[in-house]
Write a protein that binds this DNA or RNA. Structure first.
Length: 812
DNA sequence: ATCCTCCCCTAC
DNA sequence: TAAGGTAGGGGAGGAT
């Protein structure tokens, strides 16, 4: 995540560098504002802003808080963060404006709000645009939009930034790491000062495990800023409406798929006009109608016609889950992170120390979480993780339940087998075939029968689970056993090269994830999904995988994979061995297993790097780490020698102990330049580093003309500029206005010269990392608007495409 | 017996 | 339109 989501870092080292500092900066403010919201009820005055959803950026007059109140009073929605539901950005002053969607949202002066209220009607915002060039006569940048498949080089990135499943997976892993890291530091529990030793409490004499889980997490986060939807059936989906526009072709496709695929399944509930966007999360009101997470929106709307949809808010989920974890970890670190909204906590000692009953503690912690996040959660307690988890089911929504040891036997007997963790669709069917439906049934079943149906291990655990027994202790430190990237959406290759390119990007993806956790792998597995022979060519779900067969193949090498090129070669050879038709592919995945931790590098060098890494931590490899560290602080002999030793050792180290791969070609000139002179000289000598040949420009586009003014960026191309920006990003040393202006001028000139080959890359980078410093691209903005008008640059989602990419997409 | 590969299943 | 990922547990069946 850190790799993809580098945020502006204008905060001090906060110990959560992997969160890019973003959360820390906003957290206090968020908490404060929710306290306020909880405290006062807003009186409704009018509905003039119905459908309007504002995001306030920077200082405004009236203030953000006042605008929030005004929106609440007049039927609008106020966002703390820009989300996909935002309709207008409110800002007063140019340098502070964060342009997030590159022109796709209007940036409006706050007087639009106050004037509208004064006249008691919604005024046309176009008269209040902060940028004059956003007037109606000017084109908007969000055109034209083209459908993209995995054939497009931007696909992976685009897909990940919209995938809920990817998000919850990565967040889960982040929080496991978060807890592990905290446990490695000296422990402090500031939260405990909020607890008093209870006079009346009676802590249980048996061990107590708490299971805590946010209630319909995505919905709750979305409702923070949409109080008007509380109490209604709500679902989080990509689609806005359950009914699509009539489309004959699609209706036929869906019908065709229904015949072949699903007999009485969910497809039976939809037709060619129903949205097949998945419900990521639904409110309890929607669940009452039978709506379930994972359902297609079309099916959900059949069950619950009045269902309201709200968009995803990925930033919000990260915010809230971070607050949740920081809240709990301020009391104890005996936490096993399960996911972004769920964890187990061993609270036996905590209850004893403060003489708390389960109820006192539950009320305290649930109250604190609600106040801090604005979202409800439920807590279950029991003497092991299984009991705690089952107690949570009873506690939901927004409650707690303690399953006492003496109640376990009777409680368990009534539990449906489907409620046991580990019992899903397939297992449930097997158990049904044995005539078993509740834990009570299983309690009296024979171990042999269970094992015959489910296998030795599963049979045994099921029997134990049915009795409420769970031997597995909480796992506070968890060790990764595999790293994988898999895409089973949008895979429609037209040529074998598209397929190879995509495999390569998957390879790069897993490789960089492996580097993030500082591990190496010995086994590569390629997994493919292939259209089932009898499945229709087109899937019912847009770009879905449809009915597929899946095949996987793996290779294990003697030593760990030391270079991404080797990985790419292995992936490709696995693919070739599979002998599949690229046109039939519907999914591809690369998994790395047999992991080993990279041997710790030379301790003195390690110190050297660590000193530098205090500033931030978001790099993939030593190379990029060094490239982004900025200037080394010290220049002592010891460091010099150790670095030199490191390079020497590296050559002589046996392969399996090879610490970090660094080939001479990987030594970045930018890095070299920044190193202390002696070290630089030594590396150059050691590796006979020749100066890098200048980057060749494509002939299809005009050569760069230097900007009029003398600029530090004169004649530089994007690959050369990027490390400089990286350095700005990562150091306290901020670029001064002059540099920024010159860079903007440089970009503008490039746009004029039509040297837009790399301009989108640069703009996307700036947009992601320097959103606050909009003057960067604002300089070039007007010119880009022209280019868009001429069809030279198009926008897809949050990404700019140049004409060539765009044309090639049209051909497809 | 034990390990390995190729699955399948489950959870969030 | 839509964004069906990712990690871990474990079983079947063959190789050692």
């Amino acid at each position: 995540m850190s790799r993809r989501r580098q945020q502006n870092r204008d905060d001090e080292d906060n110990g959560f560098a992997e969160w890019g500092g973003y959360f820390e900066a906003k957290k206090a403010k968020l908490r404060e504002q929710y306290k306020e919201t909880a405290a006062k009820q807003v009186e409704k005055i009018s509905d003039i802003f119905t459908g309007v959803s504002i995001f306030v950026n920077g200082l405004t007059n009236p203030s953000s808080d006042q605008l929030k109140l005004l929106m609440a009073q007049h039927g609008g929605t106020f966002h703390l963060y820009q989300s996909s539901s935002t309709t207008h950005i409110i800002a007063s002053n140019l340098p502070n404006v964060k342009i997030n969607k590159l022109g796709s949202l209007p940036i409006v002066k706050p007087s639009w709000v106050t004037d509208s209220i004064a006249l008691n009607k919604l005024l046309d915002y176009k008269r209040y645009l902060l940028y004059t060039n956003q007037s109606t006569s000017q084109p908007r940048l969000d055109f034209p939009v083209v459908p993209k498949t995995a054939s497009d080089p931007h696909f992976l990135q685009e897909f990940y930034s919209n995938s809920r499943l990817h998000l919850i997976s990565t967040l889960g892993a982040e929080f496991k790491q978060f807890i592990a890291d905290l446990r490695d530091k000296p422990r402090e529990f500031p939260g405990r000062s909020k607890l008093e030793v209870s006079k009346t409490g009676a802590p249980p004499q048996t061990p107590v495990v708490m299971h805590i889980d946010m209630d319909c997490f995505f919905v709750s986060v979305g409702l923070r800023t949409r109080p008007e939807l509380r109490g209604l059936p709500v679902a989080v989906t990509h689609a806005r409406r359950a009914q699509l526009n009539p489309n004959k072709e699609r209706e036929e496709t869906v019908t065709l798929n229904m015949d072949r695929v699903a007999q009485g399944g969910e497809l039976g509930m939809i037709d060619g006009r129903s949205s097949m966007s998945e419900v990521a999360s639904c409110s309890y009101e929607a669940r009452k109608c039978g709506v379930r997470n994972g359902m297609f929106l079309g099916a959900a709307a059949k069950l619950c016609p009045q269902i309201k949809t709200i968009p995803y808010d990925f930033e919000g989920y990260k915010e809230v889950s971070m607050i949740l974890y920081k809240t709990l970890s301020s009391y104890t670190l005996n936490i096993e992170a399960v996911s972004c909204d769920e964890m187990y906590v061993e609270v036996t000692d905590l209850l004893k120390t403060f003489n708390l009953s389960v109820e006192e503690w539950a009320n305290h912690i649930r109250g604190e979480i609600k106040t801090a996040t604005g979202c409800p959660c439920s807590a279950g307690f029991g003497s092991n993780r299984l009991q705690a988890r089952l107690a949570t089911k009873k506690a939901k929504p927004d409650g707690f339940y303690y399953l006492k040891p003496e109640d376990v036997e009777s409680y368990m007997a009534e539990i449906a087998l489907a409620d046991l963790p580990g019992v899903g669709y397939a297992t449930l069917n097997k158990l049904k075939s044995l005539g078993l439906e509740t834990c009570g049934d299983v309690q009296v079943a024979s171990l042999g029968v269970l094992q015959k149906e489910l296998g030795a291990k599963m049979g045994e655990t099921l029997l134990e689970q049915a009795k409420g027994i769970d031997q597995k202790p909480l796992n506070y430190h968890h060790e990764r056993k595999s790293v994988s990237a898999e895409i089973n959406y949008g895979i429609r290759f037209k040529t074998i090269d598209e397929c190879y390119n995509f495999l390569e990007s998957l390879g790069n993806e897993v490789w960089s994830r492996l580097n993030e956790i500082k591990m190496r792998a010995k086994t590569v597995t390629l997994k493919v999904m292939i259209r089932a022979p009898d499945a229709p060519l087109e899937t019912a779900k847009f770009l879905g995988h449809g009915l597929c067969d899946s095949v996987s193949k793996s290779v294990t090498i003697a030593h760990h994979i030391s270079d991404v090129k080797i990985l790419q070669r292995e992936i490709r050879s696995l693919y070739e061995k599979m002998n599949v038709n690229y046109g039939e592919l519907r999914g591809l995945g690369v998994q790395l297993t047999k992991l080993e931790k990279l041997a710790p590098i030379n301790p003195t060098l390690s110190n050297f790097l660590q000193q530098e890494s205090k500033k931030s931590d978001s790099s993939d490899t030593v190379k990029s780490k060094m490239a982004t560290r900025g200037r080394p602080r010290k220049n002592s002999k010891g460091q010099k020698n150790s670095l030199s030793d490191f390079f020497k050792n590296k050559k002589e180290t046996p392969v399996q102990n090879k610490p970090l791969e660094m080939k001479p070609t990987e030594v970045d000139p930018e890095v070299l330049k920044e190193l202390p002179p002696e070290i630089r000289a030594e590396i150059i000598k050691e590796y006979n580093l020749a100066p890098k040949p200048p980057v060749k420009k494509s002939l299809t586009w005009p050569q760069i003309k230097p900007p009029v003014k003398k600029s530090p960026f004169s004649g530089l191309t994007w690959p050369q500029i990027k490390p400089i920006l990286h350095k700005w990003l990562q150091s306290e040393q901020k670029p001064d206005d002059y540099d920024v202006t010159l860079l903007g001028e440089h970009f503008r000139q490039l746009a004029i010269d039509r040297d837009i080959d790399w301009l989108p890359t640069a703009m996307n980078f700036l947009y992601r990392n320097f959103g606050e410093m909009n003057c960067f691209w604002h300089k070039a903005y007007h010119k880009i608007v022209d280019l868009v008008q001429q069809g030279m640059v198009a926008r897809y989602g949050g990404t700019l495409l140049i004409k060539r990419d765009f044309d090639c997409l049209h051909c497809v």
